[in-house]
């Protein structure tokens, strides 16, 4: 599509420029405004208008057919609900058995070679789901339900980003789409369905206690524990994700510690408050988070 449009428009542009240059530099014959010149210019202009009509019609029709081809899949039932929030993404993998639905954040796994139908919803403001290398964007509008079909033909990690301005940290609302072979995908999904692992490391055990006793649990869910807050991302398997903060930082123990220590400096205005912690508690928490694979 894009190359067709660029080519056609490019040719038209060059033609217009050639005529303009010629008009500006050509040698003049006697007087402007002679009737026969007017007549022949009238013919030339009419021809150019007819040409425009033809080109425009051609472009419109080809655009129409391309639109149809991105349209036909919209009837399928959705497998994932994408919910845009200020300023992160929540993904819910649907399943007929409610016990098997799982939630995760900012990292969407899909199997390659199949159409994955997304249901797009927003709770607060309008966002727009866009993974340029997979498909065009689609808005998430509060009070409305939109849909989008993803199709990856090659395994890989595709970066995406919110495309509709959604407030203060719109710039830091990225996501990753991980396209995997169907087997890997099935394994991943199975693992996500499990409850969180019990921490083993001494620091991590202490970190779990810190998590449960501090305000963390009021906003985050860790399945299999008492933490059941829903206003922040589900952290059950946060350690398995490759980025934190909606594409802000590489997921390492150090960056988790940095994030918890001061989320407002790293991503000013985001909805996670600064929770006062000793450096020891911070150590322990980051150990726990990294173990939640």
């Amino acid at each position: 599509m894009i190359s067709l449009f660029v080519a056609v428009c490019g040719v038209v542009f060059v033609l217009v420029m050639v005529v303009m240059t010629w008009a500006l530099v050509r040698r003049r014959n006697p007087a402007p405004g002679r009737p026969q010149t007017e007549r022949s210019m009238g013919r030339a202009v009419s021809a150019a208008i007819v040409g425009t009509v033809l080109v425009i019609t051609f472009l419109t029709v080809s655009s129409f057919y391309a639109t149809r081809s991105i349209d036909w899949r919209e009837a399928d039932p959705a497998t994932v609900v994408v919910r845009g929030q200020q300023w992160w993404w929540q993904f819910t993998y649907l399943n007929a058995d409610p016990a098997k639905t799982v939630q995760t954040a900012n990292e969407l796994h899909i199997p390659v070679g199949t159409d994955v139908r997304l249901r797009l919803e927003a709770t607060d403001v309008i966002h727009s789901f866009w993974v340029p290398n997979l498909t065009g964007k689609q808005d998430l509008v509060p009070g409305r339900e939109n849909g989008l079909t993803l199709h990856a033909s090659k395994p890989g990690v595709y970066r995406g980003q919110c495309a509709e301005f959604c407030g203060l940290q719109h710039s830091h609302m990225a996501l990753l789409v991980v396209a995997e072979e169907p087997d890997d995908y099935a394994r991943w999904l199975e693992a996500q369905r499990n409850a969180a692992v019990e921490p083993a490391d001494r620091d991590a055990v202490a970190g779990k206690l810190v998590f449960m006793s501090k305000p963390c649990a009021a906003c985050h869910t860790i399945r299999g524990t008492a933490a059941g807050g829903t206003s922040g991302p589900d952290l059950t398997h946060v350690g398995s994700r490759s980025m934190i903060g909606a594409g802000l930082l590489e997921n390492t123990r150090g960056s988790i510690a940095a994030w918890i220590a001061d989320p407002q400096t790293l991503k000013p205005g985001n909805n996670m408050p600064l929770v006062p912690l000793t450096s020891e508690e911070l150590q322990q928490l980051s150990a726990y988070m990294s173990e939640l694979r």
Partner: peptide, 17 residues
Amino acid sequence: MTGVMVASVPLDTQVHD
């Protein structure tokens, strides 16, 4: 010309915003 391009739905879903 770029206006004509963004007026096409399949192109605009990519370049919009």
